[in-house]
Every structure is written in C-alpha cells, then in structure tokens.
Design a protein around this nucleic acid. Structure first.
Lengths: 337, 337
DNA sequence: AACTCCGATGAAAACGTTTACATTCCACTG
DNA sequence: CAGTGGAATGTAAACGTTTTCATCGGAGTT
C-alpha cells in the first residue's frame, strides 16, 4: 500500500498525470512511455488506491446484493451466477444476506450507500415505499423475484406461473385424471404464482376435473400433514406440491399410508432441490435456473450503471423447465416451458 | 450523494471539523452541538462518503472472502456465519467465489487489494508461496480448512479427524465388528484427515479388526461403485463413507444388492447434508457447524484488523458432532466430539 | 487584574487519484 | 523563416473526509 502513483512517476521521470493516463489506457500517451511506465509500475507492484479513485470518479466498481435468509442451494447458485457475471464485467460483489425483517434490510441497504454503484435486491420485505425511503434515487437497482409491478424499478422474476402451468399439464397428459395442489404460504409471491399456474392449467386442459387446493406452508412437515389428509380422504390420482420439500413430506405420508408412488398416486414438486434426485422414487419437479437468474440480474444492473441515462425500466421473466423423474409415472425427459 | 459534510456544516453554522467530530463521537464536542449537528445531518440525509473516509483513515470497513467453487449447503452456511458476524462488527463483506484454479484465485485476491482490511481465504489452491506472492504483507488473513501449517498465517479448520474418530468409535460401540472406510480424493485435505481419524480409532478401539479402506472421490457415483464392490466381496458389517454423497451412493448399491440397512450393513457418512435426513433409512453422519466456522473466522480477522500489532498466528480447530440416525442401527442421539 | 489552563471550535493540510487546462516541442505550411 | 496546429506531457485543482495545530473564551488561581 505504500507505493503510490507518485512513486511510479518519480521512478519513470514523468508526471503523475502521464502515469494515470498510461495505466488507464488513454490514447494521449506514446506507446513507448506507456510500456516504460507499465513495466515500472509492475516492478514496484503499484496498485491504484481504489478509494482515491472512487473519490474522484464517483464509481466504486462494486455492486451490492441484498438477500434474505435463503435456502441453501438457492443461495449459492444465485451468488455463483452473480459472481461469475460480476467478474466478467470487472465488478466486485458486496453481499449482505440473512435479513429477517424489513428493519434489518433497510439498515443493510443504507449501510451500502455510497459503497456500490448498483444493487441487486431480493427480499420479501421490499416494496415501493421501502425502496423510496432507503434506496438513493441515483442508484440503479434490479429487483429479483419481487411482486412489485411498479415501472419505477427493474424487476426480474422466475416464471413460477409458467412452470406450474407446464407441470400441471404434464401430470394431466400422463393420464392422471385428478390433480390436487399443495399450496405454499399465502403471502408468498412465488407460491401465489404457482397456484395460479395450476388453476389456469386445470381450467384449460381439464375443465371438467375438480380443482383441489390444500394449504401448506413450504415446510416438509406441512407437506407430511397434507399428505396424510390426502391419503385418507380424497385420494387424488396425482399431487402437485408447490415446492419440493412439501413433496418430500407427502411422500413420507404416502409411504406410511401404504400408497405406492407413482402407481397409486403420482407426485410432483417445484424447485429441483438436490434431494429431489435422491429420494425414492426420484421426484418429478420444475427446475429453476437460479444461476442464470443471478447472471441476468447482474448484467442488467451493470448495463444500468454503464449508461445512467437509460432509465427505461422493465419486468422480465426467466423460464423454468419440467424435469420428469419416476414419481410422476412416465418416461424420462426434460422439457422447457 | 449530493450532500456532503460541508453542507451539514453550513446548515449548522459550524466548521466541517465539528461535524466530523460530532458524528464520530469525539468527546471534544459539547453535547448540545452534537445533538444539533446530528439532527441536521439526519434531516439532510447526510451519509459520509466512504471512499473519502477510506482515503484518509486507510480503512475500508470491509473484509473479503475468497472461496472456491463450493457445494451448495456448505457455501450458504459459511456465508451466513461470516455475514452475521460481519454485521455485528459493522464490517462489510466482499465476496469472490467460484474459483476453479490458482490463477483465478490469484487474480481475485489481487483485485481485492486495497478494497478490504482483511481476508478470509478458503481455497485448495492456496499455499504459502501463493500467499506470499498475492497477499500484501499488511493484510490480515485467516485461512479456512487449509492444510497449511505455517505459523505465518492464521488457520481455522474443521475437526475432520475428531469427527471421523468419533464416528468410527460409534460404529464399533454399536457392535459392528468390522468397519470399512470409503475414502475421498487423495489430494483433499478433509479427506485425508477423515481417513486418519478412522485409522486411528480402529487402532485404538478395535486393534484386532481389519482396517479396510476403499478409494472413492466424494461423488455419489464413486460411492455407488464402491458400494457395489463391497456388497459383492467383503461384506463388512459397517461402512463409513468419508462424505454423505458417497454414503448415498453406497445406499443405492446396497439396495440393488438386496442388502438391508442397517440390519445387514450399517452405514454412516460425513457432513450432514440436508439429503442425509431424508433418505431411507436416514443417514447417521457427522455434523459440521459450518456457520460457526464462518463466524469464528470473521471474528478472528476482525480482531487482527483492530490491533494490527498482535501478529501471533495460531491454528484452531472447530468441533463436529456425531448425529445418530437409523442407518447405523442404534438409538437416536447426538453427541458432541 | 494579570495569568494560566482547559475545553470547544475553526483553519488547513493531507490522503491518492483523475482530468481540465496549460505548456512544450516539432513538423509542416505558406 | 515566421506562423500554425497538433501531439505529448506537465501543472494543479478537485473529490470529501479526518486530524493536527492554532485560536478563542472563560473559569480558576495568584
């Protein structure tokens, strides 16, 4: 840290301006001096002081990610996608995760103020009001998986609706006459979209079949309880759980009730968590390309940073794919939505 | 971003020095003015420009985390632990992950230069030479899960040895006369320690029993192949896989071979990945408190940042615990190592 | 009443860059 | 040969803080 641009300049018998220009690729410097300066800088192990640079350029070359308390696989995949894209763009990644409530999220958002050029925000606690209060006007932001419909912000969502729609269709196509749906928490945006996908697919492809929605809360336990109920009364031919964990719970309940999957009842989930592959029978589910979500989000915020003028905000949606495994009782394929 | 300390000073009819002092809690300012300044700063939504502050204080209030391409649950737990501790200490977290090789890791490490006050490093590519070349002398660093024994750096490891030792003992205590071990990749530090734990526990508690080590590579597939071999020849009473994924593979092989777990053969893994709980039978395994690892690491680097003088480096080890489930064929308990 | 001391405040330097503007030098034009 | 233009380089201001040192009052001491 001791070696500054001044040291390089002195060593190269040149002004600090020329060093700056040479190292930043300004055309107003002869190739010969650039070479000389570059080699001297390398020899001295000079590395520009980023704070000093930020002070004058008003850029930090950093984007912040605000995340809630997230599920394991989802979290790491998301960060991987973001990180990879950030590296490709020469940006750093400042992470603040595990926010339980809106107060914590607000504090984190404000703490990042001035340290980042843009923000990636994934949080159930975020709404327009929250953002207006805690996000500086000038900071570009991309909202992930948000119910927000405001044209004020960029929004990037997973196509929960399309995925659930396609899965419902798959179950119907496989010949299961009745399909029950295990819903997620009422206030959860993903859960709502998935339920809508189920309902509309039922209406479209099996208008005469009964629509049956049973309330769950995304936990394995709630799936188990629902599964027990379904095994006792109703006995649908197929069960579509709004996420994989609940499907796992259902499976446990069915096993206890002596129901065979998929012979007696077909089963499907949503998310394609790693467990889905390893339970018996392997779970048919909807795969979400989480890393892609992260990558896209970063690319959008990077674009917004590069040209601050372009304030055209848009909502975009990322496709899912149905992954057919043994639990739905049919051939083995993967089909995109 | 437009409002600076100067604006606050003007509004409060006071010098910038006083504003700085008031907001930083210097005692050399009267309570009354501090109040006034604070309220004005709040009203103007003044937030100090971190780059300007860093420039003069030479502190960034940020620690960097350098991570390899990591397994899902491990990654998110680690980050959670780090993030929570960082927040508690008022530090920011700069993440760079998914490094495939030493060259990428070196680039990332250098890119963080000057942007962080300290580093958390978890990477199989890191050795003393690498660090000397890419890590500035002055930057405190804590190495996670590293084979490095140099007293040059702080090292924080998981007690793989102790965990494996305890698990081996558990299997022997449960009455399984012969215990085979499925090893991990040869060059993997964790794998080596686990194997050592197995060997020494066998020597200590079952000196007459045969030590049987079969080579795996941490993948589910390798576990499956090993499992098939074991089912055919050898048929040990218990199998201890160096990680859970291989145990899952073994389980699949045993099921195919008609071996019942745990009646015909007991099975145990290491890591306590989420799947372990949900396969049938549930897998006995060793739980690693990953979030604690992250928390401890951050706390140590924070301590090193606070008092740069204290250059006493130490190696420390984090305990694991044996989680007994159905696959090892005995009661249900959890015992710390 | 003059002095000393101390606590509160202000002025200004310093941190390490980038960049607008100034300067120099040289080749070319008329 | 004077003049012009442009390319290469240099000078210095600016960014927004923190902090050292100086200044200013006022209270206490002699």
């Amino acid at each position: 840290m001791a070696v500054t641009i001044r040291d390089v300049a002195r060593e190269a018998r040149v002004s600090v301006a020329s060093v700056s220009r040479a190292l930043n690729g300004s055309p107003a410097v002869t190739d010969e001096t650039r070479q000389r300066i570059a080699s001297i800088a390398a020899r001295l192990r000079y590395v520009p002081h980023s704070a000093a640079r930020s002070l004058i350029t008003k850029r930090t070359q950093t984007v912040g990610a605000l995340l809630p308390d997230l599920y394991g696989e989802f979290f790491s995949e998301l960060i991987r996608g973001i990180d990879l894209a950030a590296r490709a763009k020469g940006l750093h990644l400042l992470v603040s995760s595990s926010h339980g409530d809106a107060v914590e999220a607000a504090a984190a958002l404000r703490a990042m103020q001035g340290r980042v050029d843009g923000m990636l925000i994934l949080s159930p606690h975020v709404d327009t009001e929250f953002l207006r209060a805690n996000l500086p006007e000038s900071t570009p932001a991309v909202l992930l998986n948000s119910a927000l419909k405001s044209s004020q912000f960029d929004v990037l969502n997973i196509d929960n609706y399309g995925g659930a729609h396609a899965m419902t269709r798959h179950l119907l196509d496989a010949g299961h006459a009745s399909v029950a749906f295990v819903s997620g928490p009422e206030d959860n945006f993903d859960a709502q979209q998935r339920e809508r996908g189920y309902r509309e697919a039922m209406a479209a492809f099996a208008p005469k079949a009964a629509v049956k929605v049973v309330a769950g809360d995304f936990s394995e336990e709630s799936g188990y309880l629902v599964g027990r109920t379904l095994a006792k009364n109703g006995k649908p031919r197929a069960v579509f759980a709004a996420n994989d964990m609940m499907a796992v719970g259902c499976l446990r309940a069915f096993a206890e009730a002596g129901l065979r999957v998929p012979q007696d009842v077909a089963l499907a989930g949503f998310d394609d968590i790693p467990i889905a592959r390893y339970i018996t029978p392997a779970l048919t589910t909807v795969r979400v390309r989480i890393a892609d979500l992260g990558r896209s989000a970063l690319e959008r915020v990077a674009a917004a940073i590069e040209k601050p003028g372009r304030a055209r905000h848009a909502a975009q949606t990322l496709a899912c794919e149905v992954v057919v495994r043994a639990s739905s009782g049919s051939g083995r394929t993967t089909k995109p939505v």
